[in-house]
Amino acid sequence: MKKTEFITGSFIALTLVVLLGVFFFQALFQPLYEGKVMPVDNVNLKNRLSLHYVLKNVHNASKYLASHGKSYFNNRELVPSRKITFGESKNFEEGSANEVTSIVVNYRGFDTLGEVTVLFISIIGLTMLIGGVVGKKLRQPSLIVRTGSRFLFPFILLFGIYIFIHGHLTPGGGFPGGAVIASGFLLLLLGLESYKFNTTASKIVESLAGLTFVSIGLVGLFAKNSFLANFIPTGTIGFLYSAGMVALIYIVIGIKVGAELSTGVAELKEGDEND
């Protein structure tokens, strides 16, 4: 490709980007419709659907919508709700203290199952395509790296497990926990040159975790007439044994995501043992 062609292409791309930028920023600062400014700086949670997620009365809201119809959209505050107190409120819709966890696992559990499936398929594609690729040899790690990685690995694993077991109480959950576990395996792969990642074992663990996820959903289907319904009693909010099956599903997701990401990283690193 000639140089003038490249400069012309860059100029056209720059023009496009600047025009798009002007479009974005005028939406941020100018009135959108009927003199109303886009509410970027004075957001009220009462005007949003998330109100019911935060107050944990989604079932009440859907009943209210069915009986009252359109008047619901004018005022979402009319839906009856309860006060939630940490350490006291019992038997809520689901007793998870972390709102993000309750949305990911409970209200949108089927969506999460689909997302885990997407990750599974992308790692399968990686494993199929990477076969036969041989890379250059890595430099040998020093003594400090070898000893340090062997010493640190159990603690990283423990931290990952803590993150996904306490997903309904503290920040975290299955997806970050799995990522932390995978980064622990990455440290082993880089630090110990004699370490060989067992891909078969990781695939078995991953498949069993996926199977457990679906069977928990099926138990919910038979017990409560809805796939992935919460069939375990949700205890007092804020305790470790609360939130019913949320903790159970997050443990399964953590193991599954950890095994998948570790397999992906190990397969991409592969190649230096052959030459």
């Binding site: 972390n98 920040p171 975290g172 980064s183």
Partner: peptide, 9 residues
């Protein structure tokens, strides 16, 4: 904080 942990890892 949940998203921050995930993005950092």
């Amino acid at each position: 904080p949940d998203v921050a942990i995930t993005e950092a890892a």
